[in-house]
Write a protein that binds this DNA or RNA. Structure first.
Lengths: 226, 226
DNA sequence: TCATCTTTTTACCGTTTGGTCAACTAAACG
DNA sequence: CGTTTAGTTGACCAAACGGTAAAAAGATGA
């Protein structure tokens, strides 16, 4: 009766055997992508608990049981999104070049991070939601992926700082402030929309943020009489 | 049968007649405070949809129907918290003194805002959660209370800027960056705990943040050769 | 003491939620 | 073609949810 592996299970668990990668079909790739796209919409807007499978299903144009055919459950969809997100999210930090011009490297990092928040506000909000709630599903990933990168970037900035290439700043709090200021424009968009005038959110606010942050971090990082 | 106002209704709707303020009893004050305290815990940790009346009830040490005796519903509890929060949240900005020393005023504002985030992280997260989800319940309050204050503060900073008392910065984005950097330590505490080492979150990180932000905004705001 | 008003609880209701099941349809392949 | 497999769906379920009804229990004051 219960023949194991009697049929291919697209909703493969995370601990699937590495050897048995049955190469997903075109339909599977398309529908998984649809589901993740819809889930990003719903999760980023309502948070994990606030999102329902029915909402995701309707937004994806699929039935709820069909969604559970591709993913083992609500949590697996969420975790999948977070894993996908983490990679692209860390890329700007990875591109910090130890051999580049320190000030340019950091200002470029600020610019990339801001562009990323503006281009992918849903991803930013999804991440913010998860962290706000204590990172219950992404904590291991923070420890394994984010922390090593954060440590090495901090060490690099500290070296630049001690060498006098940039001002004497606390590297870790500098990174925090860059994350905070850039992601703020995505995460608090509802507030900014009210304060800047709703008609304006995409236009002047965008350029204004870039110009302000560039100038701010130029002042913060330019070495000078202390 | 349906005698209106046949019994005092502690769960008074918001649009209650102003003349009929029956002066709440000691029990009412104590239990309402318990409920709001418990609700702040639960809402700030799980978000609006993620929080349940049963959780709030258990945390408050009351039964669920008893909670609904004091508040008309889940949403009313949430809105009450947001209203209470908004007042104290805006106070540091209100204390900006047009007649003070501009640089000192702004650095003091940064310090106060950071202290507030560190002293009331649950309030900060409650607010962040609400904004993140599009401010569905607090939008009117943002328009009526936050925006006027934001506009006048921006105007004041602009005047200081044009007068040369501080550097030439965009006042509105300056305020955004102050909000972002200070609230970040409360809202992203889970992330910061991982990156700074969990044992450290309350100690060095606290002082480090204050020192870093003071130095950063000193550099940003000190007028000098552009 | 009794009568009245406030507070609390027990039992319940309708809806929503994540998830399952068995049957159905559509491809793939010989 | 037929058979096997992949994909899809309507019907359903148990649990959790916000909220209600009504009556019990406490407090209050004459």
């Amino acid at each position: 009766m219960s023949d194991p592996a009697k049929s291919r299970d697209p909703a493969q668990r995370s601990a699937a055997k590495p050897a048995s990668a049955p190469q997903p079909s075109r339909i599977q790739m398309r529908n998984r992508a649809r589901i993740l796209e819809a889930a990003l919409d719903v999760f980023s807007q309502h948070g994990y608990r606030g999102a329902t499978l029915d909402q995701i299903a309707e937004s994806a144009g699929l039935s709820k049981p069909n969604i559970l055919y591709y993913f083992a459950g609500k949590e697996e969809i969420h975790v999948t999104l977070l894993h996908q997100l983490m990679d692209s999210w860390l890329e700007p930090l990875r591109q910090l070049d130890p051999d580049g011009v320190p000030l340019d490297e950091l200002l470029t990092y600020v610019r990339r991070k801001l562009e990323m928040s503006q281009a992918f506000p849903r991803e930013s909000r999804l991440f913010a939601n998860e962290i706000l709630q204590g990172a219950p599903r992404i904590a291991p990933l923070l420890e394994e992926e984010l922390k090593p990168l954060f440590d090495s970037a901090s060490a690099l900035i500290d070296r630049w700082s001690r060498a006098g290439a940039i001002a004497d700043v606390d590297a870790r709090h500098l990174i925090f402030s860059i994350w905070a200021t850039t992601q703020h424009y995505a995460d608090f968009e509802a507030q900014i929309g009210v304060l800047m005038g709703p008609a304006d959110t995409g236009g002047e606010a965008r350029r204004g943020a870039g110009a302000y942050l560039a100038e701010m971090y130029r002042k913060v990082l330019t070495p000078g009489r202390g």
